[in-house]
């Protein structure tokens, strides 16, 4: 166990070299969007005082609705997508082939798999909490920069309505939704890792198999989601049951991905 924790610490250190600059960049852009909105507010205020036109209300939507803000929010998720591939391929490709060292460590090879996967969980949680912290800071600065009569306060869960998809996906409002969405993403990550290991084990044939496996994961999930929309179905399933089936499917796919990856790492993967 101690060796697994050391490996996890090592992997996390490697990931943070990418994640921290991405979070900082995202924060900088968010603050630029904030100060841009405050500048606009001051300009409106001046115009309103000069021309006696009634002043419009300002809320966090004016910050999050700025064109820059969604770019800032998407930087970190895009890094996660990029790093999910990079975390494996960097070990094989490039001048130094670190995969030799990793595979020759005197530990169960699934430790490599899980250390990479848990790195994403910790990184995801860190990014999630940082973004909520940033929202709180931006909230306070914005509230203090706007005169109370022109300021509409919003709940932190509603600060992103101009981009409802982003809001719903990245910042779920209940613990169940959080577990569901992030569980779905984590199972997708494990399916992707399995697909990569298939490719690393069987090259072209493995790549084809891996792509099919990865797509099949999404198809299976959305099939369950759409069960009630299929006209030929002789029964109607309660939404809560569909929710449970999706949860069971996510767990099942995590176990299947881990089992396939275990077999590949133990018997088939090559340097």
């Amino acid at each position: 166990m101690i060796k697994f924790i050391r490996l996890l610490e090592f992997e996390l250190g490697r990931f943070l070299r990418f994640l921290i600059p991405a979070i900082v960049l995202s924060a900088v852009i968010q603050f630029i969007a904030l100060f841009d909105t405050i500048t606009n507010y001051n300009a409106y205020l001046k115009e309103s005082l000069e021309s006696n036109v009634p002043m419009q209300q300002f809320s966090m939507h004016d910050v999050t609705g700025s064109g820059l803000f969604p770019v800032a929010i998407l930087i970190v998720p895009l890094l996660f997508v990029f790093y999910s591939l990079f975390t494996w391929y960097r070990e094989w490709l490039g001048k130094n082939t670190f995969i030799y060292r990793l595979l020759m460590l005197p530990i169960n090879r699934m430790s490599i798999f899980f250390s990479k996967a848990i790195t994403f969980l910790i990184g995801g949680l860190l990014a999630f909490l940082t973004q909520f912290g940033l929202y709180a800071i931006i909230f306070v600065i914005f509230e203090n920069a706007i005169q109370p009569e022109y300021f509409t306060a919003l709940n932190i869960h509603n600060v992103q309505p101009p981009y409802e998809m982003i809001q719903l996906t990245l910042f779920p409002t209940t613990s169940f939704e959080f577990l569901h969405i992030y569980g779905f993403a984590f199972a997708a990550l494990l399916a992707l890792f399995t697909a990569i290991l298939m490719e690393r084990s069987f090259s072209v044939k493995g790549a084809i198999g891996g792509i099919i496996y990865f797509i099949a994961y999404f198809v299976g999930y959305f099939y369950i989601s759409a069960l009630n929309s299929i006209d030929s179905m002789p029964w109607i399933i309660k939404p809560s049951h569909i929710f449970l089936m999706q949860g069971a499917y996510i767990l099942l796919m995590m176990v299947i991905s881990a089992l396939i990856s275990h077999l590949l790492l133990k018997n088939k993967v090559r340097v």
């Binding site: 130094n96 082939t97 670190f98 030799y100 060292r101 020759m104 005197p106 530990i107």
Partner: peptide, 19 residues
Amino acid sequence: HPGIYDKVSFIPDAAITLP
């Protein structure tokens, strides 16, 4: 088995340490 790597050491002709 994984314990074999504490018994056998391999020195490849390529760089296998992180640059």
